[in-house]
Design a protein around this nucleic acid. Structure first.
Lengths: 158, 158
DNA sequence: GATGAAACTGCTCCAAG
DNA sequence: CTTGGAGCAGTTTCATC
């Protein structure tokens, strides 16, 4: 694990919100000259800490859609059961995120789709496909309250 | 709502994964010359469809941390109760995302923090602060299975 | 929509302190 | 780490078709 100083963290937190900032502007913002700042960024990218860049897209300005969270419980807990379900999840673009959970529930996943109807089609695919899904619970999102980035501030003291 | 053709969607989906692509390279990828592609992007940004750009940061390569999902139920459902809770959520950087839900539960939120201990401190802050939080349930994430972007493919036929 | 070009800014690398 | 700069690539805005 690469050790990072406060400047590296500042570079990361600037890039997190301003991914298309120019490298010379970035250097100014962290009080470094061009060259060493560029070298730091190279290191961060090479180490895989910066995994890439992306546009933040306002889906709500683009098309009608619904966001739904689903908790899932599997039929069985043998080693193959988990990877079978996870493969099914990977193959569904409407499942935008999925996490394995400790405790009674096995998975939580987030669906973004056109409507409740297309969500039901997705669930039907999961139930009739050989995914091992036993029980699920649907939570429809009525409002996105917050969606920020990872709080790098918390790790400042490393 | 701005109407977008297939090229606009392609621009968006390229930018979603390659946020730092050069504008001339982007133009090539969508089979347009420099100028009209640049104009489309200007429109998309001006319309707020592209809300910004950000680096994808691999937190796991950076520091030990835990991800936890929490479902929350509020004491009361008067108009002020929701905004009071949402304000508290906004003020906590460790709460990286929060959604209001239909049905019995009021909110789902995602916490990224250093440890289970710091998570408990967060919960204590929410409980002792005047947030109206009545009942909550903790789901510790043991594995991130998938974390992709919004599936623009789904909206191709618009 | 396409093309070409002008003026500018930024990028990458290198040298020297 | 700094400054300075060379050579090249990318950006933005033109005018023209």
């Amino acid at each position: 694990m690469l050790k990072l100083d406060a400047r590296d963290l500042k570079i990361l937190s600037i890039l997190q919100t301003e991914g298309r900032i120019s490298k010379s502007e970035l250097a100014k913002r962290v009080n470094l000259s061009n060259t060493p700042c560029w070298e730091r960024l190279q290191r961060l990218e090479a180490a895989g800490i910066v995994r890439g860049y992306g546009a933040r897209i306002a889906l709500e300005a683009l098309a009608e859609h619904v966001t739904i969270f689903v908790t899932a419980e599997l039929e069985n807990h043998r080693s193959g059961d988990f990877s079978r379900f996870e493969d099914a999840v990977s193959g569904e673009p409407e499942i935008v995120a999925c996490w394995a959970l400790g405790g009674g529930l096995d998975y939580l996943f987030q669906v973004v789709t056109r409507s409740v109807g297309t969500y039901q089609l997705l669930i039907d695919r999961l139930l009739t496909g050989d995914t091992g899904l036993k029980r699920y619970f649907t939570y429809i999102v009525t409002k996105e309250v917050k969606n920020g980035g990872v709080p790098l501030e918390i790790f400042k003291s490393l």
